[in-house]
């Protein structure tokens, strides 16, 4: 019963908010809210690699780009005409667009996952800063490829993507990613990832297939980054390669580190804070990025383990009861 009721309540709540929010929030706030949702998905997906498994990847923007362009190209070439055909066949427009958006997101995520697999392979031999450099290179390769493929607009960007993503889809995906990450963390597979992060040699000696799990973490992380990219494309309806520079990767890493490596609630919290903060600081104009950077520095000095450490926000945590911590 609980298994059905929870998701159902969430679905209804999301649909209701999807109707209600645009009527009360001005478009600017609403767009910030959407970005919060997309960033939550990005941060949680990167946490699977950096936080759970301890593999330092700094190429997340590349996966996001692959997913964004992959899903956008599907929609522009086939999705749009398919949607038109479905609507002509009296399928309600939100249903037709939603279904095709879902297909495009899965395709974009799948494309990113393939890249994730390719990046995951060197992680078997490299660790620490060496791996970081490789992932950085890979992320840049993806961006430069896009920049040079004329069919996807190259440096001009890719305009004309239908705006099918809305509050409902963005936060549905964020909720699903969080739920899956929580399930993973509480499973034997999650423990295998944590074990790799804490001591790879011991994990291997205890029968954990470290090779398979590291690649799995990369594939899962890349898939969800790709889905986030797809949502980004279908919300802004325009893509440009310059969005996906390594600065974007750093932004997501900042969320994961600030939230606490391995903590899902930490990632969510930090994604919210780090998306809202630069917007809130617009009031101070020229000093915006200075203050933003200073706040990051101060936070890292005072809480080097991140906002949440490796803990999760739970009832026991809130009431101050001693808990072991899942990770």
């Amino acid at each position: 019963m609980k298994r059905v009721l929870g998701p159902l309540v969430a679905l209804v709540a999301l649909l209701a908010l999807n109707r209600f929010l645009p009527t009360v929030l001005n478009p600017y706030y609403f767009q910030v809210l959407i970005l919060v949702g997309i960033n939550i998905t990005l941060a949680v997906s990167l946490n699977l690699v950096n936080g759970f498994t301890g593999q330092f990847s700094i190429g997340h923007a590349g996966f996001m780009a692959a997913g964004a362009y992959g899903s956008a190209m599907f929609t522009v070439t086939w999705g749009q005409s398919l949607a038109a055909a479905m609507i002509a066949a009296h399928v309600p427009a939100p249903v037709a667009q939603g279904a095709l958006l879902l297909v495009s997101l899965l395709l974009g995520g799948g494309l990113a996952a393939i890249f994730g697999y390719l990046v995951g392979l060197p992680s078997l031999r490299l660790r620490g800063d060496y791996l970081a450099i490789v992932t950085l290179g890979f992320g840049e390769i993806i961006r430069v490829l896009i920049l040079n493929i004329d069919a996807v607009g190259g440096a001009r960007g890719l305009p004309g993507i239908p705006q099918w993503a809305n509050f409902f889809w963005v936060f549905l995906v964020a909720t699903i990613v969080i739920a899956l990450a929580v399930n993973l963390a509480n499973s034997t597979h999650g423990r295998a990832l944590f074990a790799i992060r804490d001591d790879e040699i011991a994990a291997e000696a205890l029968g954990v297939d470290t090779t398979r799990y590291k690649v799995t973490a990369f594939v899962l992380g890349a898939f969800f980054a790709g889905v986030a990219g797809g949502l980004f494309a279908h919300y802004l309806s325009y893509l440009n390669p310059s969005t996906f520079t390594f600065l974007k990767s750093i932004e997501v890493i900042a969320m994961v580190v600030l939230g606490g490596m391995g903590s899902i609630t930490g990632s969510v919290l930090a994604a919210i804070v780090l998306t809202l903060m630069p917007e809130a600081l617009r009031a101070v104009k020229d000093y915006r990025m200075v203050i933003y950077a200073l706040m990051l520095i101060v936070l890292m000095i005072t809480r080097p383990q991140g906002l949440m450490g490796t803990r999760e926000l739970s009832w026991a945590f809130l009431t101050g009861k001693k808990q072991g911590g899942r990770s």
């Binding site: 597979h189 423990r191 074990a195 029968g207 911590g325």
Partner: peptide
């Protein structure tokens, strides 16, 4: 070589991993 950021139970459960039946 324990897993420092895992609980004792989870440390042991990592080794029980190979007896799992459920997939990812």
């Amino acid at each position: 070589r324990l897993f420092p950021r895992l609980t004792c139970l989870d440390n042991v459960a990592v080794a029980a991993h190979q007896h799992r039946k459920a997939g990812l």
